[in-house]
């Protein structure tokens, strides 16, 4: 489209736990908080369900950034799921970095159901940050822009 500027539009995949972060994203909606439309959200019941493999699959599919978000430590609906998440993604960030994939492309955050503004802020900041980091282009044959 002619009127579209050619700013890089990062693709961000979001994996959100249902109880806190997905609800927080809902709250952002209910409160009409505006954030960039670059994120695609996948809901899981607990951030403990989210595997590094899902992150890698997202990068394989052309994601430039992945947001993993769960309940604040201590608030996990399933008591401890997010503690495992925290460990898994601490490792994953190191390994991504080791393979030359900027750590900033994988963000782990805690957003509660009431933190709509926080969710909107996180997505906004992350979109900006990934825009700075630039496209990942891991795919040999990228999907159409």
């Amino acid at each position: 489209m002619a009127d579209m500027d050619d700013t890089f539009q990062p693709r961000i995949m979001g994996f959100l736990c249902s109880w806190c972060s997905y609800s927080g994203a809902d709250t952002a909606g209910v409160s009409r908080m505006q954030y960039p439309p670059n994120i695609r959200i996948i809901r899981v019941m607990c951030s403990g369900r989210i595997e590094p493999l899902h992150v890698m699959k997202a990068f394989e599919q052309g994601a430039d950034g992945v947001l993993v978000s769960g309940c604040h430590p201590g608030d996990c609906h399933y008591a401890t799921g997010n503690y495992y998440t925290q460990r898994r993604f601490a490792v994953m960030r190191q390994l991504l970095d080791f393979f030359g994939i900027d750590q900033r492309r994988l963000k782990l955050t805690w957003v509660s159901a009431s933190e709509g503004a926080r969710f909107a802020d996180i997505v906004t900041a992350m979109t900006e940050e990934i825009r700075m980091v630039g496209p990942l282009n891991l795919r040999a044959n990228p999907k159409g822009v």
């Binding site: 693709r11 995949m13 695609r40 996948i42 899981v44 019941m45 369900r49 595997e51 493999l53 899902h54 699959k57 997202a58 599919q61 052309g62 994601a63 999907k143 159409g144």
Partner: peptide
């Protein structure tokens, strides 16, 4: 696997997230 949140189901979503 978790019912309704299987890898297959999540991968299907990941694979179709962008046109």
């Amino acid at each position: 696997q978790q019912r309704n949140f299987t890898d297959q189901q999540l991968f299907a979503m990941i694979e179709t997230a962008w046109d």
